[in-house]
Design a protein around this nucleic acid. Structure first.
Length: 474
DNA sequence: ATGTAGGTTGAGGAA
DNA sequence: ATTCCTCAACCTACA
């Protein structure tokens, strides 16, 4: 008996390396590739650049599906409201999707699965968003997520190489499969335009990073060709994939992973509430050209270099402004095209020395760090053209330039460009002391006995142990 | 168990 | 230009 199948696209907007899609085509007579604009995910915290990226990816996916005599069906609404109607209307017998480990996704998928069962629809998912099954990684580590990269590497070594990506379906695979591409459906389920979504894309600059599978594969290909000698993990591309796996596994095994409170691996810090400083950081007016240039690029282009992320994250949190990493997390989520729930939360904890990374006395200087690789300040000049006439010796610290130099540069600090929001040298020293106190408190909190050192070692993993036991019962 | 090594990329100065 | 040391001293993994 052949199936009427919905394949539900969510994160993996691609045809290759999509085992759930291939599974959907088995014994299938009708296929409905579906994407849902879920108000929970897309109404809040999505910057206009990310919208453009998403629409591009959907168009690319639709285009690829049409080459297979199929198409993408785009719907709006809560998935638990949308699916029951589709099940009835299309007489669906099977639903497939790629497994997604985010807490919201898990609860959403659980709801949809039980609705599907009520409608007599078979549900299948495949793991292909991560290299490995994150549960399997934890199994190899006594049921806990590995908390160091080295440990993850050792586990992965034991598990062997991940499955190779499978090719995209071909016309041959689709020969017995039909998709109803009627004129009426065209209007009803088409990809919405920016205007229909109330977005003004004309305010955006050039699209430097188009969304979609074809562009992604092209970039990967280009990278692999360009890189003659591939470095080793952790800094290689391979290493980056393992870092991704590392944070994904942590995000599955550690409760409240995107928050400080209730997160057992996160050091509890008395961050300040400081809306003015937060706004200055977000809006690129901290008075530190390197920081402001990075925040400008982030807003304009939706992508910034890895080390640039380090610099602004350290500045917002433990380095200078002493604002919670959760605030930075929200801003990155809104603006980064490559924003990802697990990686965002993991890296913010890393950079704020709240978890994984603990050498809080190593503070990135908002002046010196950029100078290391860009003495002339070309990067600053590109994103803050207001400062481009400053000579290299002052471009990272324009407030130190004599009045005459500022006048010659056509930019007066305090008038055309802000004064530095903090005095880095003093404030970072003070903040290191505050971090020290937070760590000391963490040690004493998790340890009743007077011998602190031992207590930390014993108590820390036992918290996770308890949580794991709880989980197993459920 | 207790000590030690290492931790994806700090900064600044000396050699 | 590159490497090493010091600053002050964190955590996790492993022997």
């Amino acid at each position: 008996m052949a199936h009427v199948c919905i394949h539900w696209f969510r994160k993996g907007l691609r045809l290759h390396d999509n085992p759930a899609l291939v599974y959907a085509l088995k014994e299938c007579k009708e296929l409905y590739p579906v994407f849902i604009l879920d108000p929970y995910l897309y109404n809040t915290q999505v910057g206009i650049n990310r919208w453009r990226f998403l629409l591009g990816a959907l168009k690319d996916l639709d285009c690829s599906l049409r080459k297979l005599n199929s198409r993408l069906f785009v719907l709006k609404g809560k998935p638990e409201d949308v699916f029951p109607k589709l099940f009835d209307k299309w007489k669906v017998t099977k639903l497939t999707y790629e497994y997604d480990t985010e807490p919201y996704s898990l609860s959403r998928d659980e709801k949809v699965t039980s609705l599907a069962k009520e409608h007599g629809v078979d549900v299948s998912y495949k793991i292909s968003h991560t290299l490995y099954n994150t549960e399997r990684i934890m199994e190899e580590n006594d049921g806990k997520p590995p908390l160091t990269f080295k440990r993850l590497q050792a586990i992965v070594q034991k598990l062997g190489p991940p499955k190779k990506p499978i090719p995209a379906p071909t016309l041959e695979n689709m020969k017995d499969v039909e998709t109803h591409c009627s004129e009426e459906n065209e209007k009803k389920y088409g990809i919405p335009t920016a205007e229909e979504l109330g977005l003004d894309l004309t305010s955006l600059g050039e699209e430097l990073f188009p969304g979609g599978e074809q562009e992604a594969l092209r970039r990967l290909d280009e990278h692999m060709k360009r890189t003659r000698k591939h470095s080793d993990p952790p800094v290689s591309l391979h290493g980056q994939l393992l870092w991704r796996e590392f944070f994904y596994t942590c995000s599955v095994g550690i409760p409240n992973f995107n928050k400080m409170e209730g997160n057992p691996v996160c050091t509890q810090v008395d961050w300040d509430t400081n809306p003015e400083c937060l706004a200055a950081w977000r809006e690129a007016r901290t008075g530190f050209p390197f920081i402001d240039a990075i925040m400008t690029q982030l807003r304009q282009e939706g992508w910034i270099h890895h080390l640039a992320r380090h610099a602004v994250a350290c500045f917002l949190t433990r380095g200078d402004l002493w604002i919670s990493w959760e605030e930075g997390e929200k801003v990155f989520e809104e603006l980064l095209l490559d924003g990802d729930w697990a990686l965002n939360a993991g890296n913010w904890q890393w950079l704020s020395a709240s978890a994984f990374f603990h050498q809080f006395f190593r503070v990135y200087s908002p002046v010196a760090f950029g100078k290391k690789t860009d003495k002339n300040g070309d990067y600053i000049k590109k994103y803050l053209p207001l400062l481009k006439k400053f000579p290299p010796q002052y471009i990272y610290e324009p407030w130190k330039a004599p009045r005459s130099v500022q006048q010659a540069a056509g930019c007066i600090v305090g008038k055309d460009y802000p004064h530095p929001i903090v005095q880095h040298e003093q404030i970072s020293k003070k903040n290191i002391q505050r971090m020290k106190e937070a760590y000391a408190k963490r040690s004493s909190d998790s340890n009743e006995s007077p011998s602190k050192k031992q207590g930390v070692k014993r108590k820390a993993p036992s918290v996770i142990d308890l949580l794991q036991k709880k989980k197993r019962k459920v």
